[in-house]
């Protein structure tokens, strides 16, 4: 733990990459647009970070745990939230509560399916994502319901170049990082993720821990949907699509182990900023969308190859 070389902290790659891209953007645009670039990257990273937090909670709870229902829960909650509020500012608190409840229930449903039907998490969350998608389609109806004006204003409110929502999500991330390290639940979650059998012998109610982590994942996905719908002016059926693969990539490149039991909340911000800056930069160069995907994929593979030390996997 004494020598903090980059190999020991692979999650720093995200922050370093983000910084390099940021500087590159400033140089290319000759100093202009730095503030706008930073602003846009922060704004889009908020949602990447929220879905990544969901995915992190699930991935940390053990090997093979992954939540494929993140986009479906996000979309479902966006539609239900917008439907409940119906554009009225007074209903925002109710909308938020309903969305939180739906998200928690969706996550709990996932874990119930895993536990009761003894399904692998990938399959259970895949099947339930189909169900949530249908529910979202039914909740949606035909017309797009506009978000309440206050919610829209709040999601894009900023003081100078800093988005208020981004600051809140940064605080949330820091809180989660501390919580995972210091709180009883955080320690229990990490222990469960490292070895469920050992954790159970140590007296941890591992089922309860995993239930909470899945429900928490649903909660954050739902929250992301609620805010994203406010930010983009309404819910859309495909609004969550890009977030499935992105949430996994951001979490893992942020330093969370796919094998479970090791989480890194702060690292999520690094890789989220990195990916969003990359998109913004390539967009500003008018790079063909195909090349953008190609580069994103190549970078994911490069980083994971560089950051993973061989022989860490058993």
């Amino acid at each position: 733990m004494q020598s903090h070389s980059i190999r020991q902290s692979p999650w720093l790659f995200g922050f370093i990459g983000a910084a390099v891209l940021f500087v590159a953007t400033i140089i290319v645009s000759r100093g202009g647009g730095a503030s706008a670039t930073f602003h846009a990257a922060m704004a889009f990273s908020i949602f990447s970070v929220l879905v990544a937090i969901s995915q992190m909670l699930v991935i940390t709870s053990g090997p093979g745990n992954i939540d494929l229902s993140v986009p479906a829960v996000l979309t479902l909650c966006a539609y239900i939230g917008m439907g409940v509020m119906h554009g009225s500012n007074a209903w925002i608190p109710v909308g938020l509560l309903v969305v939180a409840a739906v998200g928690l229930l969706a996550g709990a449903f996932n874990y119930a399916a895993i536990l009761l039907l003894r399904l692998p998490p990938i399959i259970a969350t895949l099947a339930s994502s189909f169900v949530f998608q249908s529910l979202a389609m039914n909740a949606g109806g035909d017309a797009t319901i506009k978000p309440p004006s206050l919610l829209s204003a709040f999601t894009s409110l900023s003081v100078g170049p800093v988005s208020v929502l981004a600051v809140l999500v940064v605080l949330l991330t820091i809180g989660l990082a501390i919580g995972l390290k210091r709180s009883l639940f955080g320690r229990r979650l990490l222990a469960t993720g490292q070895s469920e059998a050992a954790a159970r012998f140590a007296g941890i109610r591992t089922r309860q821990v995993r239930l909470i982590s899945y429900a928490g994942a649903g909660l954050f996905s739902g929250l992301a949907g609620f805010l994203l719908a406010g930010f983009t002016g309404g819910a859309a059926l495909n609004m969550g699509d890009t977030y499935l693969m992105e949430s996994i990539a951001v979490v893992v490149l942020g330093g969370t182990s796919v094998a479970g039991g090791q989480a890194n909340a702060i690292g999520i911000w690094g890789s989220a900023l990195f990916f969003n800056l990359l998109t913004i930069m390539l967009n500003s160069f008018r790079t063909p969308v195909g090349l953008r995907y190609l580069l994103t994929g190549a970078i994911i593979i490069l980083i994971v190859t560089a950051a993973t030390r061989p022989l860490t996997r058993t």
């Binding site: 796919v258 995907y293 190609l294 994911i300």
Partner: peptide, 17 residues
């Protein structure tokens, strides 16, 4: 000794691109 899930996730973007 890489996790296949991440490498193939990266490849999925490569093929789409």
């Amino acid at each position: 000794s890489l996790p296949s899930i991440i490498v193939t996730l990266g490849m999925s973007f490569v093929w789409l691109g």
